[in-house]
């Protein structure tokens, strides 16, 4: 077993008095795609926020490439090579498509992803590069959000519900691009409520239920019944 790129160790997370995560542990190997599934409110987005530094946690609860980063702010975490595609896309409405992408790369981390490569990955964006980001379709906005995160050349890309609010055909189109991202050397954590796409994309799956890991294992080894039980808490 190679040393994991990311190791989450017994992570707890709180919103005020409300505890959202209870001792969650998770590992991602270099080049691996991991799916985190679970019902609404299971703590999936909270887990990604903690990893990305948008929520602070215990310093040694999150190790990235061997370094403890749990207490680092988001702007320092992205400099280390972790990028988040936030739930609901959250593009900058005052910025054009291209400006959204450029600001994603403003730290200047070296790597394979450049504006040109993003436009090759998502050709639909090249034609709309100077359009306001809010004028795009939902699917195209999701492509901008993914491209914006890739522009920081992350070693680990966190995708939060990238299928949310998109037509099934668009979801398939977006998911079809993930292998090219992995091929460039990024690991992926894919968080989804829509488990079909997530399970197809990932080698390893974690199922969260009410802030705890209810089930984990290689995707191939888990039965539908086991996943369903962990998902709904039957």
């Amino acid at each position: 077993m190679p040393e994991p790129l990311l190791a989450v160790r017994a992570l707890d997370a709180f919103y005020g008095d409300f505890q959202a995560l209870f001792g969650v542990s998770l590992e991602v190997a270099p080049g691996e795609v991991v799916a985190v599934i679970g019902a609404n409110g299971a703590g999936k987005s909270t887990l990604l926020k903690c990893i990305a530094g948008a929520m602070r946690s215990r310093r040694d609860a999150i190790l990235f490439a061997g370094s403890p980063i749990g207490d680092e702010p988001a702007h320092a975490v992205v400099a280390r090579g972790i990028a988040l595609v936030p739930e609901g896309r959250r593009l900058f409405p005052s910025l054009s498509v291209e400006e959204n992408l450029v600001i994603g790369g403003q730290l200047g981390r070296p790597g394979p992803w450049t504006l040109r490569r993003i436009y090759e990955l998502f050709p639909a964006l090249a034609e709309r590069r100077h359009a306001p980001s809010t004028s795009l379709s939902g699917g195209q906005q999701q492509m901008v959000a993914i491209g914006r995160a890739l522009m920081s050349n992350p070693k680990l890309l966190l995708c939060d519900e990238i299928s949310l609010g998109l037509a099934p055909i668009v979801v398939r189109e977006v998911y079809a691009r993930l292998p090219s991202i992995v091929a460039e050397g990024s690991s992926l954590i894919v968080v989804e409520q829509d488990i079909v796409q997530a399970l197809k994309a990932a080698k390893h799956v974690y199922c969260l239920q009410e802030g705890r890991v209810a089930l984990t294992g290689p995707t191939a080894s888990l039965t539908r019944e086991a996943i369903s039980a962990a998902y709904f808490g039957a």
Binding site: A54, A74, H75, P86, R90, F92
Partner: peptide
Amino acid sequence: DDQAVAQLMG
């Protein structure tokens, strides 16, 4: 536009 996401951009 969005302070939290701006921080995610570094």
